[in-house]
C-alpha cells in the first residue's frame, strides 16, 4: 500500500472515531444502563406528616398511595389521631390559628404535597405567608406543633406547642447548594 492511501485511511478512521464519540449524550446512553421498572418505596410532601398522623400499621401504605388518593384514604384516620393527640382539638368546635377545624385541617394534611408559590416568598409559615414552600431555615416543627396544640390563637398548651429548637446546628449557605457542609 502506498503511503498517501495509508494516510487517508488513517484520517478516515480517526474521523470516524471522533464523529462517533463527540456526542456525549449518545455515548452515555449507549454505555450507561438506565433500564428497568422503578417501584415506589417512600414519598414525602410536608414534613412529619406520615410520622405524626399515620397509625403504625398504615405507614407503608401511606407511602405507596398516590397523593390524589390520599385524602379519601387517610383523612378520617388523621382526624381520629389528631383529636386523640391534641387537647386543642378535643371539642367539635375547636379550630387552630388558620381557622381550620379538625376535619378541614386533616383534610389539608392528608394529601401530602408541598404547596409552593412561584411568585414570591417561599416559606412554610412566617406569620404572614402560609404554605408557600419550605425553606431550609423554616422552623416547621414549631409551626406544626402550634397548629396542632396551640388552639385558635397559638396560646393553648404552651409546653406542647414549641420544642424550643429554633434553628439548625450549622448556618445555611446563601448560594447553591445552600445546605451546610457535612460534619
Amino acid at each position: 500500500m502506498k503511503l498517501p492511501i495509508l494516510k487517508y485511511l488513517a484520517i478516515a478512521t480517526f474521523s470516524l472515531f471522533v464523529f462517533s464519540c463527540n456526542n456525549d449524550d449518545n455515548m452515555n446512553q449507549m454505555t450507561t444502563d438506565f433500564s428497568g421498572t422503578f417501584v415506589q418505596k417512600d414519598q414525602m410532601g410536608r414534613p412529619a406528616v406520615n410520622t405524626v398522623f399515620v397509625s403504625s400499621a398504615s405507614k407503608n401504605t401511606f407511602n405507596t398511595t398516590v397523593p390524589s388518593q390520599q385524602g379519601a384514604a387517610f383523612q378520617s384516620m388523621f382526624q381520629t389521631n389528631l383529636m386523640g393527640l391534641s387537647p386543642a382539638f378535643a371539642n367539635a368546635v375547636d379550630k387552630n390559628a388558620l381557622g381550620l377545624d379538625a376535619a378541614s385541617f386533616t383534610g389539608l394534611l392528608a394529601t401530602d404535597v408541598l404547596n409552593v408559590s412561584l411568585d414570591g416568598k417561599t416559606t412554610f409559615f412566617d406569620g404572614t405567608n402560609v404554605l408557600t414552600g419550605r425553606a431550609l431555615a423554616d422552623d416547621v416543627i414549631t409551626v406544626e406543633l402550634l397548629l396542632i396544640f396551640g388552639g385558635e390563637d397559638f396560646s393553648e398548651n404552651p409546653t406542647l406547642s414549641n420544642d424550643n429548637v429554633d434553628a439548625n446546628d450549622k448556618p445555611f449557605l446563601t448560594s447553591f447548594p445552600y445546605l451546610a457542609s457535612p460534619w
Binding site: 414519598q43 410520622t51 409552593v116
Partner: peptide
C-alpha cells in the same frame, strides 16, 4: 420529619428523610 417514617423504608437506601422547595 420523614426520617425512618415507616417500617418498609426504615434504614434503607430508599428512606427519604426530608424534602424542601424554595
Amino acid at each position: 420529619a420523614d426520617h425512618i417514617d415507616a417500617p418498609a423504608t426504615q434504614g434503607t437506601s430508599a428512606d427519604i428523610t426530608d424534602f424542601y422547595a424554595f
